[in-house]
Design a protein around this nucleic acid. Sequence first.
DNA 1: ATCCCGAGGG
DNA 2: CCCTCTGGAT
Length: 216
Amino acid sequence: MTPAQIERFFAILQAANPHPETELEYGSAFELLVAVLLSAQATDAGVNKATRILFPLARTPQQMLDLGLERLEAAIKTIGLYHSKARHLLQTCRILVDEHGGQVPRTRAALEALPGVGRKTANVVLNVAFGEPTMAVDTHIFRVSNRTGLAPGKTPLAVEQKLLERVPPHYLLHAHHWLILHGRYVCQARKPRCWECAVAHLCDWPDKTPAPSKTT
DNA sequence: ATCCCGAGGG
DNA sequence: CCCTCTGGAT
C-alpha cells in the first residue's frame, strides 16, 4: 500500500468507528493488565466471562494473592491455558506488591519483566491504560497487516516496526483497535468477509471472496 | 520448535 | 472432525 492508500485505509476505518475501545471489561489499570494477560489465545468474550467471576473476588494484586492458586484457577478455568496463566498471574501480583507498591508499572521494561507479560501485552497496557502510541501486534493485526499489504512482515516485531513507520501519526493512538476490530469482524482468519469490507479496494489480497449467494 | 488448553464456530 | 482465539515461556 502506498502512503496515500494507507491514509485512506485508516480514514475509512475511523469513519466506521470514531471512538474504538477494547472489548475487554476492566475498571482499573490492574484489571486491564489481568484481562490482557488472560487473553492470550482466548477470545475477549471468553475472558470477560471469566473476569466477571474473578474480579468480584479480587480487584487488587494483594487480593489476588489472598485468593490463592486453587480458587484463581477455578475462576478462569473456562479459558484455555489456565494453569500457566494462574501461576504467572500470582507471580506477577507478588512482584507488583513487593516492587511496585501494588501499582501497574508504566515502563515497557518493568512490564515485560512480569511473568506472563510479553511485548504484546506490554504494548496493550501502555496504549490502553497509559495512552502511549504503541502497536501491539496480535494474531488479528499480524494477519490483517500481511493480508492487506498494509505492513507485511515475517514476525510480529517486524510488523510492529513497519506499522510504526507507516501509520500516519494522527491515527497511531487508535490504529491498534481499528485493526483488531477489522480483523475480528471483517478480515477474519478462515473466511474473510471481503464482500462487505469497506477497504477491499485498497487491499492486496488476491481472493476477493464473493458474497454468499441467497439460493433463491 | 514446542507446549499450554478450553470454548466456540464451520 | 478441524481451526481459531488481542501469547508467552521453555
